[in-house]
Amino acid sequence: MLKLAVLSLLNGISVAALYFIVASGFTVTFGLMRTINLAYGSLFLIGGYVGYQVGDLTRNWYLAMIAGSAIAGLSGAVLQWGVLDRLRGQDMRQALVTIGLSIVAADVLLAVFGGLTYQFTPPDWMQATVSLGVFGGYPAFRLLLIALSLFIGVFIWAGLTCTRVGLAIRAGVDDREMLSAIGVNPSRLFVIVATCGSALAGLAGVIGGTALSISPGEDSRYLLASLVVTIVGGMGSIAGAAVGALLVGLLEQVGLLYFPNYSIVAVYLVMVGVLALRPQGLVRGTA
């Protein structure tokens, strides 16, 4: 029984890691740039599907990962540059346009890739099982996923706080005109941020397709996770995204073990509780 609990705890953390990778891009673009992109679920799917196609052709999982991130990053850049930047300051129209685009994207992806469920095959060394002593074994890939999400979290945090680009991004959020007056192009800067966030969503598509699977409808699951993580954790905060993702992932997986009919409800009770007590989210945004 304890073994089962520990395993479901680990499952919860690995799902949380996946949610965190998608939601970190969402929360940074929303919290820092005030640009809302509700097509993150679609970017996740695009990354996953294209990555699968590349991986299937080249038999190389690393290439799949790179291709998935690249195509999602490119789509995100085009979306930011072509649509969202033109609707700057009109967040409701941004939300509606990206909802519309995600409907189209889901339909086109269904047409191209069909309704099948895909699963990636990672390199052999990742398929190993790590022994956890009395608790049995656990797939190495999921432990790697947890490590990767930690790395990404630290990387984003450090990038925003310690680098000149991060400084410019935070400055651009506070005063766009002043930033452009000192010679930085905010539009270009925000395209870079959108590209990175979208590439993370695409990366999550490949990794999620390896740890779990990828199929039509997964986009809504990850969009929902991003929304809840952002609402619970606080807009624009990486630490908040981590806390939110952990909460959602753990409640979902541990709930599946102990109260399978109602595990989703637990997540929502927490969300409602957070909104009632701390409407700004658990961790306040940085900008």
Binding site: I36, A95, L227, V228, S263, Y268, L275, A276
Partner: peptide
């Protein structure tokens, strides 16, 4: 629940609630 939210924040919260109900109905 959404009494303090405006605009796109309310849209996000209500969307999350609505999709939560969907997943709940699908699971229960």
């Amino acid at each position: 629940i959404s009494v303090r939210l405006h605009g796109v924040y309310m849209l996000m919260l209500t969307l999350a609630l609505a999709m939560g109900f969907f997943f709940f109905a699908q699971q229960n």
